[in-house]
Design a protein around this nucleic acid. Structure first.
Lengths: 363, 363
DNA sequence: TTGAAAGCGCTAACAA
DNA sequence: TTGTTAGCGCTTTCAA
């Protein structure tokens, strides 16, 4: 579980309220039978199929009847039954989206713009957490497919064998996001984490750092951090430099990063730069430096990944890589809508959104 | 738009990749007609309704036929059509959830546990961003209701008039979350932001601070921050102390907070403590103090709200209030499931989850 | 442009 | 325990 309360090294805790009350229900059930299209038709004096047509393509219905239908809809507060419509037409306006965890700020940002763009186009998001678990992913794909979704969005390229075959068997448009450069099932919107690692390597080499470290959450939880490491490590090695790697154990990146840094520097004091797998880890490293009075970048240079909200304001401002977290959402929506709009759309489109290196004073 | 690129005061930017390739589609459409329950029945040599029964209540079907059905399901890769099922039974296993923005880390955390608990119980989440906009909220409620959801979850108590009447007209179980203490439509799981403000007021008064400030994102975007301010303000006033309030303009809390603090302290140097509407603002304030060489809490005490991942590790560790962000998700799920499970469940339940004051060295 | 009729794939009485 | 029979509320031919 990700609940942080256990980790807080609080000096004092005061509980405030915490009551449970069962009140009389303030909601009065204004008993309501569901209003159907037939009811609207009766009130408007037309046939149900005319109502259906009006609702879907208003301009194919005469203006006079259209107005009568509109009035009836409003008077009755008619809400179409989407499931009936979906069943009859055998398609739905649902897009299923799978992320490892919604609460990861990167994915949350992507979901934000994705939801926005797709809602504007009349689609709705069915969201599931895979929790980095292939079995859960398979189960989720299965239950999303049972909705006959208009499209599916998944994170990364790693899926179970059975999941892949379900995906291939259907012809539901699929976008794999947040990664790029490996064999994909259909469409892709993301960027190369390997190239990101290389980008930072090049930067640190240019600035003359030769003895470096990489601190990261566990690769088993964050596959993409592992890819960044690969890129970084190979890049540094090619430049004749050295990388010491350390994985964090727990869930809270910032807290543990400080401790790990101390350990690492005690073992190998010659390290002069650290690339952190994300900005939260970098923040923990910077706090540790502050506590020890180590100058950044004088004693130790620090670089991160994410360009989180606070990174331009750390002391000193943090060098980092900005991933296209919002653009990914937009691009996924674009790909999906293009495919859904016209069947003559080009086949699988794979979009590399790239990243930006933001050089600040910490390196 | 929330895209941060404009704000980054980067010294240098290097774009890395950014290509668009239209590859030949690697997915081969293994043309697939949808397998129906009738197909399964035929293969298993039973009637469709027996298959239906088996899928819903396996123990009411004889073991022999059960196995034949199971085998047929697996052989055909049968996936039930949820829309047909939902239409026939006139209920769905969908829960609609409305949050202001998914990318807010508090709501994202809640969504995380909410999704987890509800998925375990066989429900799926349809998620929508209201973007603090009543019209959008109404539109979303409308489209969620058209799915005949099993339940609805909304953030806070503020809804448009028409939204409220739609909600009251339906008898869909509803939970309003992340707030407590105001008139609710049905069930509630949250905590009092007013009480939270008072809690911090009491704490600062105890420590002897009398001239204080409150720095916050705009109340129009964050209604609940406004409630915390009310509680804080009234609490301090009753203790004979003073509060100067400042609202931030932009979207990035950390960045602007530093500038605002400088301004504020220039105007009124006697201020000795700041309560920040959230930990991100507090972080910005702490960075500013670090830059100016102001000691915390000697020159200025700082308190936050959120107990975000990094707050135990700031220098010095930050006093803050921990909201039950994960518990809210769990509790919302509990309320919904209790109501959905048995119709004899008690009426509207309103649960105050409370908060914890975590006293650290910054005050 | 409008309406009648036939399903979409399942669930839920009910009868066997 | 199993099968038969009607729908659920829409969309979609097809004819008028």
């Amino acid at each position: 579980m990700t609940h942080p309360s256990g980790t807080a090294s609080q000096l004092g805790i005061i509980a405030c309220r915490g009551s449970r009350t069962a009140l009389a229900t303030p909601r009065q059930r204004r008993g309501s039978q569901r209003v159907t299209m037939g009811d609207v038709a009766r009130i408007a004096g037309v046939s149900p199929s005319t109502v259906s047509l009006y609702l879907r393509r208003p301009d194919e219905v005469s203006e006079q009847r259209g107005q009568r239908i509109q009035a009836a809809v409003e008077r009755l507060g008619y809400l179409p039954n989407t499931m009936a419509g979906g069943l009859a037409s055998s398609r739905s306006r649902i897009i299923g989206v799978l992320v490892p965890t919604i609460s990861n700020s990167f994915f949350a940002a992507t979901l934000d713009t994705l939801e926005k763009r797709l809602r504007e186009a009349g689609y709705q998001l069915l969201i599931g957490n895979t929790e980095f678990d292939e079995a859960r992913e398979e189960e989720l794909v299965r239950s999303m497919m049972s909705w006959s979704p208009a499209g599916l969005v998944m994170t990364g390229f790693r899926h179970g064998r059975r999941t892949v075959s379900m995906l291939l068997d259907s012809d539901i448009p699929l976008v794999e996001m947040w990664d790029y450069g490996q064999p994909a099932l259909d469409m892709v919107a993301g960027f190369s984490h390997y190239a990101t690692g290389q980008l930072i390597a090049r930067h640190l080499l240019e600035r003359g750092y030769r003895d470096t470290a990489f601190i990261s959450p566990s690769f088993s939880r964050d596959v993409r951090a592992g890819e960044r490491y690969r890129g970084f490590q190979e890049g540094m090695e090619q430049g004749g430099a050295r990388v010491t790697m350390r994985e964090l154990g727990g869930a809270t990146d910032t807290a543990e990063a400080g401790a790990l840094l101390s350990e690492l520097m005690a073992e190998r004091p010659s390290i002069s730069a650290v690339f952190c797998a994300n900005d939260m880890v970098a923040l923990g490293v910077m706090f540790e430096c502050q506590r020890r009075g180590w100058e950044i970048p004088g004693r130790l240079a620090v670089a991160g990944f994410g360009n989180l909200e606070f990174t331009p304001n750390t002391v000193p401002p943090l060098t980092t890589v900005e991933p296209p977290k919002y653009e990914i959402g937009r691009q996924v929506a674009e790909l999906l809508l293009a495919r859904l709009g016209k069947s003559d759309a080009p086949g699988a489109r794979q979009v590399d959104l790239g990243v930006r290196l933001i050089t600040r004073e910490s390196t």
